[in-house]
Design a protein around this nucleic acid. Sequence first.
DNA 1: CTCGGAATCAAACGATCGTTTGAGCATACG
DNA 2: CGTATGCTCAAACGATCGTTTGATTCCGAG
Lengths: 207, 207
Amino acid sequence: MPASSSAQPTKERILGAAEELFARHGFEGASLRQLTAAAGVNLAAVNYHFGSKDRLIEEVFRRRLDQLNGRRMAALKDIAGQPGSTIEDVLAAFIVPALELSHDGNGSLFMRVLARAFAEHDDTLRKFLSENYGHVMRQFTAEFARLLPNLSKEELYWRVDLVTGALTHAMSGFGMIQRKSDVTEHKHREQTAQHLIRFAAAGLKSP
Amino acid sequence: MPASSSAQPTKERILGAAEELFARHGFEGASLRQLTAAAGVNLAAVNYHFGSKDRLIEEVFRRRLDQLNGRRMAALKDIAGQPGSTIEDVLAAFIVPALELSHDGNGSLFMRVLARAFAEHDDTLRKFLSENYGHVMRQFTAEFARLLPNLSKEELYWRVDLVTGALTHAMSGFGMIQRKSDVTEHKHREQTAQHLIRFAAAGLKSP
DNA sequence: CTCGGAATCAAACGATCGTTTGAGCATACG
DNA sequence: CGTATGCTCAAACGATCGTTTGATTCCGAG
C-alpha cells in the first residue's frame, strides 16, 4: 500500500514530470536527476517504481495512449461502416480526442512527446508503438479505404501517411499558440479541429 | 594547409559521420566518441576543427541548408510573380530540391536531421534556423499568398504550417522506403514529388 | 505494542559524457 | 639544415549519467 505524503502519489508525480521534461528536452536530454527534482521525489524512486528509465518512458506512452486511442476507437466505432458517414467524420474521430488531451493536466505536452517519437526513427520505440497501438491506425486506414474506393492501395497509404505527419506536427504545436482572449478554450479547440479536418480532407480527396 | 592522409579531409569526414549519427540517434544521443570512431578520426579532432559539439551541429545544418535553400530560392525565383505560375509550381520549387539531396552522398539523411530539429522545440536551434533561413519560408509564404488571394492571413499561415509539417515528415522518410527495382531512382523521386505536390496543393486550395 | 513489508532516503557505483592538454608528427619556407 | 605551423594523437580532466545499495522511516495488520 502506498504511503504518500503529498497530494499525488509518487508514481503519478514522476509520470507528470517525465512527460513535461521529455517533451521539452527529449528522452536522452532529460536526466533522472532533473526529473526527480522536478517531481519532488528521491532519485532512486524511478528505478524503484518503474525498474529503469526505459520502462518509465514506456509508461509515459502507455498512460496517455491508452486513453487517447480508447477515445479514438470509440469515436470511430460510432461512424465506421455507416452509410451516412464522411471523411470529415473519420478525421474528427482521429483529431478531436487528441486536442482534448490538453484538458487533462499537461496532457497537451504529450502530443509533443509523441511528435518526438515520430521523428526519432528509433527501432525499439517504433516496435513498441506498432505492437501496442498499430491496430488503431489500421482501423482508421480501413475506414478511409471504404470512403475512398477509387484510390489504389499505394495512393491510400501515401495520403494517410501525409495526413498523419501533418496532424502530428500540428497537434504537437497546439497549446503553444496562444488563443485570443475573447474566445473560450472550447471554441479555440473547435476552430483548430475544423482547420485540421478541412485541410486533411482536401488532401485525402485530392483528384 | 591541410595534410590529409585519407581521400576526404578530416573536417568533411566528421561532418558526414555527424549527419548520419545525428539522424540515427539524435543530437544528444550521438556521442563524440561514436562519431569520431565512425569518421575514423581522433576524438580531439571535433573540438580542434569546430570548437565544440554545438558548433559542429550548427555546421551540419549550415552545410546542407545553404545548398538546399539556395536551390529552393533559385527555383522559386524562376516562377515568383509570373502570371502563368501555379501553386503546384511553387510546391515543386520547395519539394524537388529536398528530394534531390539524396543524390549527394548521404544527403537524404539530412532530412531526418531536419525533421528532428523540427520536432525538438529547442529554443537555441529554432532561433538559429529562423535567423539564418527564415527568409526562405517567408518568400514561399508570400508567393502562396499571391496565388491564394481569397485566404485570410490566419488561414494562410495555418495551411502553410500544415503543409510544412506533412512535407517534412514525408521527406524525412524518403530514402527509407525502398523503390521497386524496375523504376530508376530518378523516376522514383519524380513520382514521390508528384504525390507530395498533389496532396499539398489540394490542402492549400481547399474550400 | 510489535512486527513486517512498502516506501523513501543519502551515498556511492562504474560508465560515459564533452572538453582540454601537451607531446609528437608532418609539411612548407627561410 | 633549422624552424615555424597545421594537424593528429593518447591520455587525462571534472562533470554527469543510469543504476544499486543499505539504512531508515512509515504505517497498517495481528
